[in-house]
């Protein structure tokens, strides 16, 4: 993978990730999140994980965020724009974030394996789609089925809740 591409997409992700938080307009925030997801997908693809990258775009950027945008537009949220910024709270938030990143940087800096270059990964002879499929349906078949049942229960629950008459 070219380091040049890595820095482009990582930078894109960070800039638009910050845009999600900093934008006062909910639609702009949602769209920033979409661009950030696209950057993440590009990073996956540059690691030759095409399947994960494409699923990232398909599920998050293509379906979940469309629903988000749909809801934001339907509700026409303008309250966020009018609200005053609480400077004390944002200073506290920034302090927590800075403290966390300093801690992470410290730990990574002292982590022994992070100081040596990794040998290049061996190229897999198996297609990554086949790899994911065989792992999912052979090694992790039971958990996969259980998740299926769980999602079904959640779907039925949503239908029941939304069909209930309000009294």
């Amino acid at each position: 993978m070219s380091p040049f591409l890595f820095w482009i997409f990582a930078g894109l992700m960070l800039v638009f990730g910050a845009g999600v938080v900093l934008n006062r307009n909910p639609v702009a925030s949602a769209l920033s999140l979409v661009v950030s997801f696209l950057g993440l997908a590009a990073l996956f693809m540059s690691l030759d994980a095409y399947f994960i990258g494409i699923i990232q775009v398909l599920v998050y950027a293509g379906a979940v965020m469309v629903l988000f945008l749909f809801i934001i537009m339907l509700l026409d949220l303008r309250a966020e724009k009018l609200r005053k910024i609480n400077w004390l709270a944002s200073a506290g938030g920034i302090a927590v974030a800075v403290a966390l990143s300093v801690q992470i940087l410290y730990v990574i800096g002292n982590f022994r394996f992070s100081q040596q270059p990794f040998p290049p990964l061996a190229r897999s002879t198996v297609d990554d789609v086949h790899h994911v499929g065989s792992l999912l349906f052979e090694n992790y078949n039971l958990p996969f089925q259980i998740i299926g049942v769980l999602v079904l229960v959640a779907t039925i629950g949503v239908v029941v809740l939304s069909k209930r008459e309000l009294r």
Partner: peptide, 25 residues
Amino acid sequence: DINVGILFVFAIASLGVYGIVLGGW
């Protein structure tokens, strides 16, 4: 010629809705 061709088609096509939704909004 990528190995997830059809998924790529669906993924990119699903982004097409943004143009229409944003245009309307």
